[in-house]
Amino acid sequence: MRKQISDAARLRVTLLDLDPAPWRIIEVPLSMTFKGLHEAIQAAFLWFDCHLWEFDVADRCYSLPLDGDQGLERTYNASTARLTKLRDSGISEFLYIYDMGDNWEHHVEVLDLFDMPAGARLPAFIDGKWRRPPEDVGGVPGFEMFLEAMADPKHEDHDDLFDWYGKPFDAQDIEPEIVKVQMGRLASMRRPKK
């Protein structure tokens, strides 16, 4: 009897250069494209998907082609490249970069490859900890200043940053209910395996 080839992956995505480092564990079908993985990571971290992004996988850059892109580095189309590459090439880790200005680097680790049960709805959120920084906060240095000002009501920037963010920053609340709804929306757009 022929062994079935794994068709899904469990991934741990960790936002680098922060302490504590926000992380999420998600499960995705390997038939998904890198663009689909981008959407799943956006949903898992509740990013707003309003900036450029790319994957750096085994010395290849996957992103969306830009009009007039004359970059020196060849970019592969993330809309057509599938995650089966991870399984077929034995890739166990890679980078996802979101927002080239703030430069949020995420380390993506393949924790497991498995056979997706019939009727399974992926992608799915499994676990996570620590809220990600606000969009457009200014990268790691800006986030550190933001945390300092938000924690001290006497800080000269406290009121402005509180107004900008709109509420207290709770580093422990990753809003799992919203994450699950967002991931469920992505899963419902995919055809279930028969």
Rank of each mutant, 00 (worst) to 15 (best):
G166Y: 12
D163N: 08
E148F: 03
D56C: 05
K180E: 10
H158C: 05
I41L: 15
P134S: 01
L18T: 09
V57I: 11
D160M: 13
H158Y: 14
S31G: 10
V57M: 03
L113Q: 10
D163A: 12
R10P: 03
D19L: 13
V137G: 01
V179D: 04
L113N: 03
L16P: 00
D19E: 14
V13Q: 05
A44C: 02
S89V: 00
L111W: 02
N103P: 05
G101N: 11
L46R: 15
D115W: 08
L15E: 08
R190L: 12
F45C: 09
K154M: 11
E39P: 04
Y76V: 00
K129P: 01
D17S: 13
L11D: 07
P141V: 12
K35F: 15
D17N: 13
A81M: 03
C50Q: 12
A171D: 06
R60I: 01
Y165E: 01
A9S: 11
A40C: 09
R121T: 11
N77D: 15
I26A: 09
L86Q: 03
R10S: 14
L83K: 02
L52G: 02
P192S: 09
K167Y: 02
R12P: 01
E177P: 04
G138V: 01
R121M: 14
G101Q: 08
Q70E: 14
A171H: 12
D115Q: 09
E148I: 02
A9M: 07
D152R: 11
L18W: 06
H155S: 02
T14P: 04
P153S: 10
G142V: 01
I5R: 15
Y96T: 03
K154P: 00
S31A: 13
W164C: 08
Q70W: 09
G128M: 10
I174Q: 07
D157T: 05
S31Y: 05
R185T: 15
A187Y: 06
A149E: 14
D115P: 00
Q182N: 14
D159M: 08
G90N: 08
I178Y: 10
M145E: 15
G166A: 11
E73Y: 01
D69G: 03
V13N: 07
D7H: 09
K129H: 12
L46S: 11
G128D: 06
Q70L: 14
P22N: 09
M32A: 15
E105I: 08
K167Q: 15
T80C: 00
P29D: 11
N77Y: 05
V110L: 05
S63F: 03
G119H: 05
Q4A: 15
V181T: 13
R74M: 07
F146M: 11
D7C: 08
F146D: 04
E73P: 01
R185F: 14
L113G: 00
K180P: 06
V137H: 02
K85M: 13
P133A: 12
V110F: 06
L46A: 08
T84C: 07
R185H: 12
